[in-house]
Amino acid sequence: MKLKSNIAVSESGFMFDAGTGDSYSLNPTSKAIINLLNEGKSEAEIIDFFAKNYDVEKNIFEHNFHDFLSIINSMNLTEEN
């Protein structure tokens, strides 16, 4: 899964969908996830990255991560790799 090509994310965490005109404010965690998705990282790699670099248990992050993915998916912001 990756963000649609016409979605831009700025350094400040402002995300703009040029196809719909919608915009979103990302918190630092979601911005980090989006950046990793944009780099082409797999879901497993992202989970490992957070478990290693953030103060969070892997299963808790995994649960929240999948919630986050389903939210951005339902908002029509993603497409398959």
């Binding site: 040029a18 196809g19 719909t20 005109g21 919608d22």
Partner: peptide, 21 residues
């Protein structure tokens, strides 16, 4: 193309943004 961002009670665009579609 434009998407209305703010619509008045008369349904008129009070704010809008150009989109890529």
């Amino acid at each position: 193309p434009m998407r209305k961002q703010y619509i008045t009670d008369k349904g008129k665009a009070w704010g809008g943004i150009t989109i890529a579609d």
